[in-house]
């Protein structure tokens, strides 16, 4: 991604900081700002958001005229999508499906996010992890979740 005369790392991270800073600063304008002596809820975020944006600009500028020296690593798309998918799935269904099915499915999918794991290996791993997690968290530590949730006709 040799877009420009900027170092990619500095340019991208700088842009992220500018964007994040801008979000916090703009959003805090909708809260009461107050004064330095009687600060409202928007005061600190406005200051810090502005500072973050400026820092972001400085970081990006710092990368000027420094061509990338190293090859960027490939994006682990499969891992990104599957692992984030697992986390979202876990959150969305833990109350409805219950502990055992959610952990079983989640660990299978998480294992599949590595190209080195075959479906058979992933399935074995999923069963092992489900037994282990159920024993540790639900039986051992008394976590209050149902084994099988209300969505399942059991």
């Amino acid at each position: 991604m040799a877009v420009s005369k900027f170092e990619t790392k500095d340019l991208v991270s700088g842009c992220i900081f500018v964007a994040a800073g801008a979000y916090f600063a703009l959003e805090s304008l909708t809260y009461e700002i107050g004064t330095a002596f009687r600060m409202g809820p928007g005061f600190m975020p406005l200051m810090l958001g502005t500072a973050l944006s400026l820092l972001g600009l400085a970081i990006a500028a710092n990368g000027w005229n420094k061509p990338d020296s190293e090859e960027a690593p490939v994006w682990p798309w499969r891992g990104l999508i599957l692992i984030i998918g697992v986390i979202v799935f876990f959150g969305a269904t833990i109350r409805g499906l219950g502990f055992v099915p959610v952990v079983l499915v989640s660990s299978f999918v998480a294992a599949m996010s590595s190209r080195l794991n075959s479906p058979v290996f992933a399935a074995m791993l999923a069963v092992t992890l489900t037994v282990m997690c159920t024993l540790i968290f639900v039986v051992g530590l008394g976590m209050s979740v149902p084994w099988f949730g209300p969505w399942l006709p059991l």
Binding site: V138, L141, G142, M143, L154
Partner: peptide, 24 residues
């Protein structure tokens, strides 16, 4: 105690034999 707090209980309860499982 630790075990009891976590054990699952299935099945619906009728008001007359309430309670049949732990109450939160």
């Amino acid at each position: 105690g630790v075990l009891l707090a976590g054990l699952p209980f299935a099945g619906s309860a009728f008001a007359q034999d309430y309670p049949t499982k732990p109450i939160t």
